[in-house]
Amino acid sequence: MYDIAIIGAGPAGASAALFTAKAGKKTLVLDSDQSVTKRAWIENHYGAPDISGPDLVAVGKKQAAKFGAEFVTAKVSKLNAKDGSVAIETEGGETYEATHVILATGMLTDMAEASGIATKPGTEPRIKTIVDVTPEGRTNQANVWAAGTVAGVSMHTIVTAGDGAKVAINVISELNGERYVDHDVLKS
């Protein structure tokens, strides 16, 4: 059983995983390796020099793994809400369970729709459908959240990464029962 499972390891998912793992939460990231970021060249990601999408994704995954996030390559086919947790089914037949799930599936909403998660029309160019979320990132399903492009934010990597962090902080705060803040300080 994981505290948090994140579906997708692009900028939103890896950023969420970085925050959840660093907060000491048992974190699983399930990724189908289909991130649109893997085809990108990025010159507008704050704090990073010009970088290829594959390199940005690799750096994000490495940062999250440093704090203990586990990565599994698998395509999630369906989520099933249980009493206080969510069962995660993959196309390969594996099943995982987590207290909370964060969807960070980019442009892909088929698994969300198959799981009964409410969607609505997208507003970004080329994004036809998004998951319907509250400002905190909650979906209509208990313990299921969404972040990044699938949640309707701008497709730019810096924006989706920030949204992944925001939703992760909200999930951590709910698990902890108080607002979570992660501020490191320079060592003298």
Rank of each mutant, 00 (worst) to 15 (best):
H45W: 15
P125F: 13
T119W: 09
A65F: 05
G93P: 11
N170Y: 00
L30G: 01
G116C: 00
A69V: 07
S188G: 10
G60V: 13
S52E: 08
D83M: 02
V101K: 05
P54T: 02
Y46D: 13
S77A: 07
M1L: 07
Q34A: 12
H156N: 14
S52C: 05
S35G: 07
K166I: 05
A147M: 09
L186D: 13
P121M: 14
N170L: 00
Y46M: 15
E113R: 12
A48D: 15
T27N: 08
T119M: 12
K26A: 00
A98Q: 00
G24F: 03
I6D: 08
A98M: 00
A5G: 04
P49G: 15
K38V: 06
E91C: 09
A81T: 09
G177Y: 02
S35P: 11
E113T: 14
E136P: 08
G13T: 03
L108W: 06
G10I: 12
T139D: 06
G177S: 05
L175R: 04
T37H: 09
G68A: 12
V59M: 13
L28N: 08
G93W: 06
T105A: 01
A40D: 07
V171F: 01
M1F: 07
F71G: 08
V167Q: 03
T90L: 11
L186C: 12
K66N: 12
I172K: 00
T27F: 03
V133A: 04
M107F: 14
T160S: 11
G8P: 07
S52F: 07
E124D: 11
E70P: 02
S15K: 13
E178V: 06
L30V: 06
N140A: 11
A12H: 03
L79G: 01
K62P: 06
R39S: 14
I158T: 11
G137W: 09
H156P: 03
G152N: 04
T149V: 11
T129C: 07
I169L: 15
N170K: 02
Y96W: 12
D83R: 09
A12V: 00
T123G: 08
G148L: 03
K66A: 14
K26W: 01
A161M: 12
K128W: 10
H45I: 14
